[in-house]
Design a protein around this nucleic acid. Structure first.
Length: 105
DNA sequence: ATGTTGACCTAGA
DNA sequence: CTCTAGGCCAACA
């Protein structure tokens, strides 16, 4: 059970399938808030970069953004997922954009 | 409670 | 394209 905001972000990140990417804004929106920066901060806090695929999170304009282990590492991971990267930007980024499942109610 | 910072976003010039 | 300005929220000192 998530106790802090970052925990919620990690939960969403783990829901992202392979070969898909999301933006910080999408995560914030999925959480029902606009704390884009809070999401980025949560990634920066990244306590377990293994169970949490933070490398699948990019900026809203298609750029890679940043990564705790380094941008280069993030690019390699994304390419390893099958995503094309060029000049620190995602190719066909909207085609790889993943949408979180809406909350049933 | 206050002030600062941050892996951000949008708009305007 | 680059730069400036505003907004928006959570974590930390």
């Amino acid at each position: 059970m998530p106790s802090t905001f970052n925990e919620k972000c990690y939960e969403l990140l783990m829901q992202i399938p392979k070969g898909k990417v999301v933006t910080y804004g999408d995560i914030a929106h999925a959480l029902g808030t606009k704390a884009y920066q809070a999401v980025g901060n949560a990634m920066g806090a990244n306590p377990n970069p293994i169970v949490v695929p933070c490398h699948r999170v990019i900026k809203g304009n298609g750029e890679i953004g940043n990564y705790a282990l380094g941008i280069g590492k993030k690019i390699e991971l994304l390419q390893n997922e099958g995503i094309e990267i060029c000049n620190n930007k995602v190719v066909n980024f909207k085609a790889c954009r993943f949408v979180f499942p809406p909350k049933l109610m």
